[in-house]
């Protein structure tokens, strides 16, 4: 069945991320002046305001920062409720958002903040593979 949920549009800023995702790599932006990783992608480093930013392949691992269970959603996601959304502290620093896999949305008390997670990519279209994180 075709992917029926929102598909992001790669743009000139985010293109390296989506190219990496298609190859199964979690690409991250890093400032070559202050060496800090930021998320989401920027035209300028939000920490030191340098415009020297490079992309590198991240570990694809992190931990759950916080989460919620969505019981109401729209479009393609409406068919999936309940599902768990989570903010992920990635090992390289800063934070990503995801729908969490490998958890039971009907037992939120069993989901642990701080639990280790790993990224995986789901093909949503030929061009766009969307990252999701799974508890390991």
């Amino acid at each position: 069945m075709a992917y029926n949920k929102p598909i992001p549009e790669p743009d000139p800023l985010s293109r390296p991320f989506w190219d990496g995702a298609k190859a199964g790599k979690l690409m991250l932006p890093r400032c070559t002046d202050c060496n800090r990783v930021h998320w989401y992608p920027r035209w300028i480093c939000p920490f030191c305001h340098s415009r020297n930013i490079e992309w590198f392949e991240g570990s694809g691992e992190g931990r759950i920062h916080t989460f919620a269970v969505q019981h109401r959603a729209f479009g393609g996601w409406a068919d999936e409720v309940p599902f768990v959304t989570a903010y992920i502290d990635i090992n390289e620093g800063d934070r990503m958002f995801t729908v969490l896999r490998g958890v039971d949305p009907n037992k939120p008390e069993t989901i642990q903040i701080g639990a280790r997670v790993r990224v995986e990519f789901e093909p949503a279209s030929e061009d766009v593979h969307i990252p999701f994180w799974r508890v390991i």
């Binding site: 949920k5 549009e9 743009d11 800023l13 985010s14 969505q70 109401r72 959603a73 990503m96 729908v99």
Partner: peptide, 19 residues
Amino acid sequence: PWDPGSQFSGPYGISGAPS
């Protein structure tokens, strides 16, 4: 769709403030 923040939160099924 080219807002870099929403590009990385929009795909994940949240809708409105409560979520």
